[in-house]
Design a binder for these strands. Structure first.
Lengths: 218, 218
DNA sequence: CCTTATTTAATACAAATGTGCTAAAATCAA
DNA sequence: TTGATTTTAGCACATTTGTATTAAATAAGG
């Protein structure tokens, strides 16, 4: 009988090597040779798991999305929406090095998917999933009667989702400015701005984020 | 005397050819040969304007940013902030095919700049410029005493900027969902949410965007 | 210790890449 | 028209690319 190797584990190892290559040298350097070297195996060996480069990249992109999904799935909820929504979004935003790696790689794949049909579908799926989180969020807030009256849900979903992805991009591009603390503060502020005054922020000092800073002249 | 060719005009032509190649086939296909073919000139000829590929890409990226700056600069203002701010952001967001091309190409360069030092500086400059617009916006709103009291300017700047870039990304990725109308509505809603009730939206029917839609179950 | 199925490594090859070099074409002043 | 000078085109060359093929190494069953 043959040498037994965990196929899935090897594929995952190669996928993670792909991420590192992309982060360090850009997706244009994600050649089969560079990835094999990063993974510590030979090209011929790698081809046993991925018969084409396109397969390899698709799989690597899928693995990123699965990692993010897993993170969301693993999030523990308290029942307090004003606590749970920031917690959830904290797991999506690049608030540590591991998540930043994922996000940088994800953006690389996303941009590539603009001109690569084999990646487009997955991008749309992930986009739909992520967006549906915000639909769920608004349903939850609405049922708990925390929301301000008269909100246009469709617009608010797009707005909240835009805040999330905008923060994510900015955190990746300017980590020294858009720190985890800034991200959390922005998310919390946005959430509070959608809710009735007074009702929200149970077990959280109310309004502690609303310092009255003066704008600087420019 | 030699043949006279408008150097700058030729360089601009090549830069725009670069954009089209990137939009159609991705930045990894932005080779000197592909770009020269798209521009309708020979490789040897192109090398007369850009001695290296790195130069070519840097210049093309710079041209995109200049186009956006020019658009901002050309925007005419009415004096009514509640009108002018959406107008200004409308010029930045990908609200038509030309601007969508720019934005797709810009994102390609931005992602590449994560692993290419020769592009990093320009990205930071543009980022700083764009962000400073929001500082200016908040200064203006503050001076006109339109703002809600107690706002944390630093957080609000990041939030508004995140809404902008998030919308831009989503519009590029999902143009059928994030239409120009949606973008305008989100921007307007965000702006209004920052301002005192009643005071805002001169010459604009107040609250016309606030339909009471119900969230759909998912 | 063999046998055998499977993984791994190495090599091969055509295509595409960036860049250098050379000769032809084109243009304006004389 | 002539001549000077720049633009243009084409080829050359070493590297890197994706993929195919082939031989060696490996591990489990007999």
């Amino acid at each position: 009988m043959p040498k037994i190797v965990d196929h899935e584990l090897q594929k995952a190892k190669v996928a993670e090597a792909t991420w590192r290559v992309i982060q360090k040298h850009g997706i244009e350097q994600a050649s089969v040779r560079n990835i094999a070297e990063e993974a510590g195996i030979s090209v011929g060996s790698m081809r046993h798991y991925f018969s084409t480069q396109s397969e390899l990249l698709s799989y690597s992109m899928k693995r990123v999305s699965e990692r993010v999904s897993q993170r969301i799935y693993d999030t523990v909820f308290s029942g307090d929406l004003m606590q749970d929504i920031p917690s959830l979004l904290h797991e999506v935003l690049p608030t540590d090095n591991e998540k930043r790696l994922e996000m940088e790689v994800w953006f690389s794949f996303v941009v590539k998917s603009l001109s690569d049909d084999s990646l487009r579908t997955l991008r749309h799926q992930v986009d739909d999933e992520l967006r549906s989180i915000f639909v769920t969020v608004f349903n939850g807030l609405s049922e708990s009667q925390l929301l301000l009256p008269g909100l246009d849900f469709a617009i608010e979903v797009e707005r909240f989702y835009a805040v999330l992805d905008g923060l994510a991009i900015h955190a990746v591009m300017r980590p020294e400015r858009v720190t985890p603390e800034v991200m959390v503060a922005v998310i919390r502020r946005h959430l509070l701005s959608l809710c009735q005054p007074g009702v929200h922020s149970m077990a959280q000092k109310p309004d502690s984020n609303a310092k009255k800073e003066q704008p600087r002249d420019t």
